[in-house]
């Protein structure tokens, strides 16, 4: 389904703008989609356990603030690690509150969205924070002919693949998403897994923020704003259910590329910039619609002999 949609997009934008299909632009789409894919990978995990994390944008911002304010001279890997750690810490706090106090994830992460952003603005005194020179250079560098952001994205995708396909974590999160109480009865460590889900979501957000920061070199107080909706849309467009339990490790990849392609295409055909949010809104709506259509019982029904 996303593939079909992708084909249509390529066709439409390709005919409207000759530059769009240039190899260079297609590579640019991949590079641009990196941060979104990574953030959506984390979102994917919490969606699978029938949760949600609205605070990923704030986690991205806090990571960027930590890197921009404190680590101007350190090597790249220290900055990277710091951003991921800040995100993970933020996610862990979300997870702890959701699991131990048993408050709906929607409410908790809505609150921490404001807390996180407010904290970031307070620390940075509302000033724009800048990426250190090595970080900014990394954002534009190549490694074996492939841009470094793509390497980072690929690593994150691999991590998600291993996590969901080759460790018990994968079936565990889908079990919890399908039936929390049933999962507990089946011996799944529900609290631990749910908490780790939010922690990992934060960590992925931290990494996504780092990739984004390395590309833009600077983060204003609006850095990462609305990222949560794009990330949810990416995961859902790729095939993960908003209602938990159903989805795959690659959903955020296809969904993230799809959304970035649309945004890139709009730029390429010189669309009115004010139309971007409208189109993005339609895409999010489409994602939600697709998801509810997927759960129509008629489509689920598979007749069987016997």
């Amino acid at each position: 389904m996303p593939l079909l949609f992708f084909g249509v997009l390529l066709l439409v934008f390709g005919t409207l703008s000759p530059r769009f299909l240039a190899l260079q632009n297609l590579q640019a789409i991949l590079v641009q989609s990196g941060w979104l894919i990574v953030v959506a990978l984390g979102m994917n995990l919490v969606l699978l356990i029938a949760g949600v994390d609205l605070s990923v944008g704030s986690a991205m911002y806090l990571g960027a603030v930590a890197v921009g304010m404190g680590l101007s001279a350190e090597p790249v890997w220290v900055s990277l690690l710091a951003s991921v750690m800040v995100g993970a810490l933020f996610g862990a706090i979300n997870g702890m509150i959701i699991v131990t106090l048993n408050v709906p994830a929607f409410i908790v992460t809505l609150a921490t969205t404001f807390i996180g952003r407010g904290l970031g603005i307070f620390i940075s005194s509302t000033k724009i924070v800048y990426a250190s020179r090595p970080v900014a250079e990394m954002g534009r560098a190549d490694l074996s002919g492939i841009p470094v952001p793509i390497w980072l994205t690929t690593t994150a995708v691999c991590a998600s693949w291993i996590l969901l396909r080759h460790t018990p974590f994968g079936p565990y999160v889908r079990t919890i998403g399908a039936d929390r109480e049933g999962a507990r009865r089946a011996g799944v460590p529900v609290a631990l897994i749910a908490c780790s889900g939010y922690l990992l979501c934060g960590a992925f957000a931290g990494l996504g923020g780092f990739i984004s920061l390395s590309q833009t070199s600077a983060a204003s107080a609006a850095f990462g704003q609305n990222a949560e909706f794009l990330a949810i849309a990416a995961a859902v467009l790729g095939g993960t259910s908003l209602f938990g339990g159903r989805g795959s490790w690659w959903a955020p990849v296809s969904g993230g590329i799809l959304i970035t392609t649309i945004q890139n295409g709009l730029v390429m055909i010189d669309a009115n910039p004010y139309a971007y949010p409208v189109v993005t809104g339609f895409v999010i709506f489409l994602a939600a619609l697709l998801d509810s259509v997927r759960s129509w019982p008629v489509l689920r029904y598979r007749p069987r002999a016997g």
């Binding site: 079936p171 565990y172 889908r174 079990t175 998403g177 399908a178 039936d179 049933g182 009865r185 089946a186 011996g187 799944v188 339990g245 159903r246």
Partner: peptide
């Protein structure tokens, strides 16, 4: 307590 969204194998080995 079968989970419809898991595979047969995953259902069998869930928890171990």
């Amino acid at each position: 307590s079968i989970f419809p969204n898991l595979s047969v194998a995953e259902n069998l080995f869930l928890g171990r």
